[in-house]
Design a protein around this nucleic acid. Sequence first.
DNA 1: CTGCATCCGTATCGATACTG
DNA 2: CAGTATCGATACGGATGCAG
Lengths: 133, 133
Amino acid sequence: MSTHDQDPTERSEEQELRNCQSVRQILSRFGDKWTSSVVGVLGDKRLRFRDIHRAIGTISQRMLAVTLRGLERDGLVVRTAYPTVPPRVEYHLSERGRALIGVLRPFGEWVSANHDAIEESRKIFDGDTEEHE
Amino acid sequence: MSTHDQDPTERSEEQELRNCQSVRQILSRFGDKWTSSVVGVLGDKRLRFRDIHRAIGTISQRMLAVTLRGLERDGLVVRTAYPTVPPRVEYHLSERGRALIGVLRPFGEWVSANHDAIEESRKIFDGDTEEHE
DNA sequence: CTGCATCCGTATCGATACTG
DNA sequence: CAGTATCGATACGGATGCAG
């Protein structure tokens, strides 16, 4: 995973574990409740806080602020504040953010393609375990 | 949430939002604390509960059971129980599971490549916000 | 050996109210 | 407009004990 591994037998477990943690950190950011929606709404656009808030509709101001902070902290979103009255703040995806969603796209397509099959697996699984009662 | 969307001009947005939810569901499974470790340990092998437990080392039995149930429910892992005494249960990745980690690999490589840069962004961000005290 | 039940601490989320 | 502060509800994770 880390580099192009030419050692298929046994690459360093230690490094793989560390790597696993990094991957999980990013994955859990996108696995949280709002990040993917925010990134999806942003797309290639520059949007104000209010516009993102309205576009998503069901997110609270607090969670939008928290989500944007997290993305900004990782350098995936750029925040631009204009010192005007009333204040105006714009957000847009950084280069890094755009690259990341590009890498994530094949994953999204796979999920779309397999969504129905996964749903069915869940139904079957839930049905089977219920029969124990 | 997407049900009240009354914008007839942009139908793709609606579908994209629904899609977003599906993607997030899978993403949050892999974003949880243990799934990626379990999948990583499994690899191409068939392993018993106990072996997975030992391989990860720090996971509790409870969380391993919960994680495996979740993966099995989505059809990503296959569980095989032998009715012996003492019981013996083996787990291995399904075809679907293998396909999914294949799709996830480019993501993992991207994270490895950008891990240091992200770390630095966080340090800078945390340093800047601390100055407010 | 497998893995569920229980309890408990912590983290996350959401609603509301408030500030600059 | 763009947030922060506070609180309560819920979800998640870990330790322990026990059953099949």
